[in-house]
Amino acid sequence: MTKNGEFYQRDRTWHPPAVTPDYKTSVTRSPQYSLISLQNSVSEVTGPVFGHNDIHALDNDLIHNYAQAGDAAIGERIILHGRVLDENHRPIPNTLVEVWQANAGGRYRHKKDTYLAPIDPNFGGCGRTLTDESGYYFFRTIKPGAYPWRNWVNNWRPAHIHVSIFGTAFAQRLITQCYFEGDPLIDKCPIVHTIPDAQARAQLVAALDMNASVPLDSIAYKFDIVLRGRRSTLFENRLEGN
């Protein structure tokens, strides 16, 4: 039987570079020196493990997880679902997926957000879940609104949901954003365009998924997430102890 080895190196040309001047905040928050590349040790191939005791079964229902009893969040009801896979197409089971987003008016429930769109008293804006045995996850939520932000004078974020994923190792840790098929603001967004490659940007756009929608209830978007894959150690030069 082959054993797990190191993770494939991250393709830094696929990810955004650290300095992206059109996204102004990155200019002073980006290292100027090159990252130092490390081959994996035990510190990188391990990472936190979560279980069903860590979360509540309804944490993945953003329509109801902050609503008063009998109430629901306002907005277009959607299901966001997909699988967490690695680069080898293998599903990643039991991994924590966390999301956060603005409400239907584009306002975040955060003490630092002062946008004039109103707070929805029945919407918190965060959710979390564990993938099942086949790497599958889903959230029920409302489609977030677009909102303006200070970069150029008139920048608007496309509707998006922030997604945080762990995988099985600290080397796989990832935060990204999920956009929605057909949104004309995607191509105008300097944050989306921190990613140089058009195919890579397309990987962040969830597809309208009519087959997974619930008739007369919710429309669905499919968003698969890919984390770094791992080598099988067929030869020497492997991690000690593995």
Partner: peptide
């Protein structure tokens, strides 16, 4: 092989999701 999902900034409101 699949390609790793590209990263995006956590943004200013990361607390909502990860430290509400």
């Amino acid at each position: 092989y699949l390609k790793e999902t590209p990263s995006q900034t956590a943004g200013p409101y990361v607390h909502i999701g990860l430290a509400p």
